[in-house]
Amino acid sequence: MEVWHEHFWQLRLEHCREALTRNNFRVVIANSCSEARAIFNETILPTLSVQTVSWADSMSLEATGILTDAKNLPGVTVIETFAEGVPREELLERRRQALLVDLFLTGSNGVTEAGQLVNLDMVGNRVGAITFGPRAVVLVIGRNKVVADVDEARRRIKRIAAPLNALRHDGWKMPCRKTSFCHDCRSPDRICNTWTITEKSYPKGRISIILVNEDLGL
């Protein structure tokens, strides 16, 4: 990466970190996926009392290795909500249970320069957990999720993130899988059902954010 390009993102992420911190989020910047993993294990995790853990679908978590570490925390009960071969009804029940864990891990569809989180969910377990329930939430957010404002976040999610996410899942039948564009569909497999805008972390520091100076996720 060119030095000027790297400096641009350092400045942009620092601006975002300051805005998020003013909004009561706990924020750390990582220069790489490996550094994000170290921050989670060495800086954030030791401050939490974790007996139960779960997570929402997040390519960013997987890319950093944090999800692997969370699954292997010693003495911690893991609520696995994406297990293969488990009936959907059971997975939904586990997702309900995951709303009461000590630590919930996920990513975010967008983060604004004013320090807001913008997310769009299919089932609602991810945005539900960010909003209320788990004692602590940790979000891993790549620099590609940083946008100017809520309107830009919504456009990015509907035009880019949602169609790409639909294409990730074989067997789903939404028109965006065929065209790459949102049709505001009525498909039973529709993944765009619940919007949330998180203006501030409440209580202060409940939500920790690792901003990563790499493009992560969708």
Rank of each mutant, 00 (worst) to 15 (best):
K200R: 10
V111R: 01
V118L: 10
P134D: 09
L13C: 01
L99F: 07
P74L: 14
N41H: 13
A56R: 14
K71V: 06
S108G: 12
V138L: 14
G133T: 01
S201T: 08
L91D: 04
R88Q: 05
K178P: 00
R12W: 13
M174I: 07
M122L: 12
E2H: 15
L117G: 07
N213Q: 11
G124V: 01
V147W: 07
N193F: 09
R22E: 13
I79L: 06
M1I: 10
A148R: 11
G107L: 08
W195Y: 08
G115T: 00
L167P: 01
N41T: 15
P188S: 03
M122R: 14
A98N: 07
R143I: 05
R17W: 00
T196K: 13
M174Q: 04
G124L: 04
L164W: 12
H5G: 10
N23P: 06
Q10K: 12
R168V: 03
E35F: 07
T43M: 13
G217Y: 05
H183D: 00
F40Y: 06
V212F: 07
T64A: 02
S201F: 04
L92H: 10
L99D: 02
V3D: 11
D170K: 13
R159V: 11
D215T: 00
A129G: 09
R95Q: 02
E214W: 04
D57C: 15
E35C: 12
I29C: 15
V86Q: 11
A166G: 12
S34C: 15
R159N: 15
N193W: 13
G205D: 05
F82Q: 11
K158I: 05
C192F: 02
A148W: 08
R190L: 15
T64Q: 02
P175Q: 12
V78R: 05
I197C: 05
R26C: 09
G65N: 08
P134G: 01
V111S: 00
E199S: 14
A19V: 01
D151I: 07
M174F: 02
E2Y: 14
L99R: 06
I39M: 09
A70H: 08
E42I: 02
E214Y: 03
A153M: 04
F40I: 08
L99W: 05
W9R: 04
L48Y: 08
Q10W: 11
A98K: 08
C185T: 03
G133S: 01
L92E: 12
E90L: 11
A136K: 15
T81D: 07
